[in-house]
Amino acid sequence: DCQPVRNDPRNGSKRAVSGHLTVATAPLHSFSVLEPGGPGGCAARRLVTVEETARAAGCLVAQNGGFFHMSTGECLGNIVSNGDQVSSSGGLQNAQFGIRQDGTLVTGYLSEEEVLDTKNPFVQLVSGVVWLLRNGRVYINESEETECDKTQETGSFSKFVNVISARTALGHDREGRLVMFHVDGQTEQRGINLWEMAEFLRKQGVVNAINLDGGGSATFVVNGTLANYPSDHCLDDDMWRCPRRISTVVCVHEPRCNPPDCNGHGTCVQGICHCTGDFWQGADCSILDCGPSNCSLHGLCTETGCLCDAGWRGSNCSQECANGSFGVGCAQKCQCENGAACDPIHGTCACLPGFQGDTCAEVCSLGWYGPGCHHACKCESLCPCDPKTGSCNLTSTMHDILSRGTAFFKEFGGERTAWLCLTLALALLLLLSAAANVTFVLGSRTSRRRLDGEYAYQPLEEMNGELHSLEKEQGDPTCSIKD
């Protein structure tokens, strides 16, 4: 009766175990799967301690991650580390835990196509063995069905599930927080089995979790320092326990941006990129955005703002160049004359009717009319038409001929039609002039007849201050002039 009750630690009775539960918010930015010793570790089949890998990556908390081949160092299962897939299971079905690019947490069994999805790819992914909790329910029996080939592996797999040992697990709670867990132990002597671990995690509010590598691999590191009691003995002195050199590591760190340098266009503060300037946008500062109108489709958005196409101006390229200027930045002056409109892009002139030439400085050639003088006159008399309207009205045409006489001779002196029209015009003027002269002469005679000959012609003559003899005779010379 004096002997105390002694429980067998392997029969499920209460016993003490030590371990750590780590909860990380915003796991998209604060959680990483690391290759052993840094990038390229899986390809190189490196095996290094968790401390070494965690220190280099600046992990606040780190644990051993996926399974690996102990003799070759090969990473086993699917491994995606910071967006790079560095190991593939080749479709072998084991429990997976990962985070997709949009922050989605994924737990369970994945097809190869899902692992390789490019629309929303995994940025972190690690493979374990046994899906411990599925949507808040212990899922170990179903996992054995999926992950164990019963014909050859039942004994080994069953022992793996039920033996007490050091364990590690990875999962998340209902709020989307990531949960890392480990307990110390020694296979068959200390620690917990997977049933106990699943139930413990469930009670902590974890809803999905997978089991990662345990036994002597179970290692917990805080700020680069070993913080648990590994179960492997040391080679030099088996009184001491030494951390095993393992493969991948799961790591919780200060929130980081993706990419860490925000593509060179921003500053990373607690996992959030604060983009520089007014125009870099997006979670990773990779998008140039010049506002809702985005340069009004008349320019290119650059990191200094809208670079407007030729003919456009303003902060969002919404204004055309003012009349009189054109080109990039509206920097060039238009040369258009005679009221012609100037194209704001190329500076070309749109002539008003009756004008032509690059700057619309020239009037239409005879026989042509309209804007830019592109239309040929269609007058029956072969006379030139109105250069503005194309009208064949002779009066207006004659008026135009007279007003532009010099140009007419220069440009069309040799043309038969032009000469014909000029001849007609001059003949008409001659007739009008002759008629006017005849009328004048006849009118003058009639007037003289009315004076009855009461006049005398007296030529004015002055010689050395003396009047002509006739003037002397008549007295006052001024009176002799009657007409």
């Binding site: 401390e51 479709g91 296979t187 691999s217 179960s231 492997d232 080679l235 030494c242």
Partner: peptide
């Protein structure tokens, strides 16, 4: 005290050394 080398003696393996499972 320096980090010693592990004996790798606490092995906890889900599958036998030669894996026979096939991809699905």
């Amino acid at each position: 005290l320096s980090t010693g080398v592990s004996l790798n003696d606490d092995l906890l393996l889900p599958y036998p050394g030669t894996r026979t499972r096939l991809p699905r």
